[in-house]
Design a protein around this nucleic acid. Structure first.
Lengths: 332, 332
DNA sequence: CTGTTAGCGCTTTCAC
DNA sequence: GTGAAAGCGCTAACAG
């Protein structure tokens, strides 16, 4: 049996109120302070946060709902989110949706029953109904990385469309005319980047035939199979835009296997810089996200909501990106 | 205010006991069942796990203490651990030690105060004193991936020493005599793999001069700088063993930069297969860990302890590994 | 500054 | 099968 506040009370002869006050940083006579601290050490006392949370109705815990904990992107974002929360005195309760909407919906209820003070969501679903239990429970919610199509929540993300649009200039300005795309149509980010791609092409007066538009999910398989299809085309593209890290990985994998060279055979433009891409020859042009800023802003916004400091309508924050230059694009 | 069991009571006219029984899967008259379910739906009722945990003294939550949530290794392991726990009806409370022993020690106390039923630890520290608060609180503990030097806890990991020893045959059997090592001396796994390396060399009758032994941490920087030093040597090694994923990454990065070719200039043997290594030319020989098995066994063992089914002395489970073949080793 | 007391939302005897 | 009541460990008035 772990020690409770009552054990401390008996050991010190003080009242529960005094001990509670000490635990919560209130003023206590120096001599009593010493007594309490001695008792705590001796009994290995550790506050029972369940009991505390039950009465205060606060857990100092933020729920983090991630689409997949396996993704390196998730790991990086969790690191920054966690650090920002820790600095503010909050812990995080991470739940993994395993890229599955069913699990995601269940996880929302789980977080509610754990009485988290707020929720940061990197969603799987593109519609927002799965969040309504949390909304009903009046738990502040901030979306991170991905927005939702129907309901409006606070959201911190990059400007996917504009980032893609701008990055596409690298290919277009070097006279590429036949440019293909491999993008997710399931994830919000993939769809937005696809749109940015199409806009850039349209504004450049370039056609994108149907077989240059490969849609799938943000997975290695999509990149791998997509690039395979493109390479098999009689009229191959000279450049390819890939909408995220896993797709880029898969696409390069299949180019390597097929013996296609970049940029000699095909020029590449990717998304999500990861350090190991520097290993590759050639280095791929990549759109790089400001990971720390994403985490910081999400936490800042959420805490603002939790404290009632921010009280306006839902806010959408779209951060800018940076293009990591490489030598994967040939000038035609 | 979220609905409570009392609201359900008033709505249905039943007693708290009956409703509680229903919530916990007990037998209730069909008509009452219907009433309760209707009330739950109408009121958006969700059990308060704080209150429940307070009385049952169980949270159905396992604390996971990870050395760094940013590492791709961690992401993969968390995925498998999480899945195994979910199947058994447990949630996980992940805390990130950020590779910092201070934070790690604080996190243990945090998990205790959150009343987790058990803890899985991927430790930063190599000594085990930071875990004694949990031990005092009688919370079952299972180490994962890394063992500790002083105290004995249940541990699930690979056989680092033997895996390395066996993998080294690839270099040795191809007549490499001048083999260097870049390994962590901070992490348990790095030290064990270093020992396996040295044993293999000794048993093959090969010397390892001091400047062939690069020690550091499991970081890209260690790999990068380490390989740089090796390349600058007047008497360069023909083969290099690297003790984990980050080191392998860093080492290859610096080889690429310096224009050194593998396997022509230097043959490579690494640790921790990750999919994107397949992108690289040449493909590196890598020792691959059984990630799913690691997670499954750790969860199995922990739950055994929590239920008191397993009740022996600490168990150390050392799983085998698989060598992912490549073409990064030249025959001399 | 300290003590007394009520109660957070739930489970769990124990009668009925 | 159901209900009444006690209590998990803590905080928050309030009185002193």
């Amino acid at each position: 049996m772990p020690a409770t506040i009552v054990d401390i009370k008996e050991k010190t002869g003080l009242s529960l109120a005094t001990i509670s006050k000490y635990l919560n940083g209130g003023n206590v006579l120096p001599e009593n302070k010493v007594k309490i601290e001695a008792a705590i050490k001796e009994l290995h006392y550790e506050v029972n946060e369940l009991a505390r949370g039950l009465v205060t109705n606060k857990t100092n815990t933020v729920g983090i709902l991630v689409f997949s904990i396996e993704s390196p992107f998730t790991g990086m974002i969790l690191h920054h989110v966690g650090e920002a929360l820790r600095k503010k005195g909050y812990g995080m309760l991470i739940v993994d949706s395993c890229d599955d909407e069913q699990i995601e919906a269940r996880n929302v209820k789980y977080l509610i029953s754990k009485k988290v003070d707020g929720i940061i969501v990197l969603p799987v679903a593109s519609r927002g109904d799965f969040l309504s239990p949390a909304k009903n429970a009046k738990i502040p919610i901030v979306l991170l990385d991905r927005s939702l199509s129907d309901i409006q929540y606070d959201c911190v993300r990059i400007d996917n469309r504009k980032s893609t649009y701008n990055a596409m200039k690298e290919l277009i300005n070097r006279n590429h005319k036949k440019i293909a795309v491999i993008a997710s149509e399931r994830e919000y980010t993939g769809r937005e980047r696809f749109n940015g791609f199409m806009e850039a092409m349209r504004d450049a007066g370039l056609e994108v035939p149907a077989d240059y538009q490969i849609r799938g999910t943000h997975s290695i398989a999509t990149g791998y199979n997509g690039m395979k299809k493109l390479m098999a085309l009689k009229d191959r593209p000279t450049g390819v835009f890939m909408s995220n890290y896993e797709i880029t990985l898969g696409a390069m994998l299949s180019m390597n296997e097929a013996g296609f060279r970049c940029p000699d055979d095909i020029s590449l433009l990717g998304f999500d810089d990861q350090l190991f891409f520097h290993l590759l020859q050639p280095q791929v042009y990549m759109v790089e996200q400001p990971m720390k800023a994403l985490g910081d802003r999400a936490v800042e916004l959420l805490i603002g909501r939790m404290n009632g400091i921010i009280d306006e309508d839902p806010i959408e924050i779209a951060l800018g990106t940076r293009l990591q230059e490489g030598n994967s694009i040939k000038t035609l």
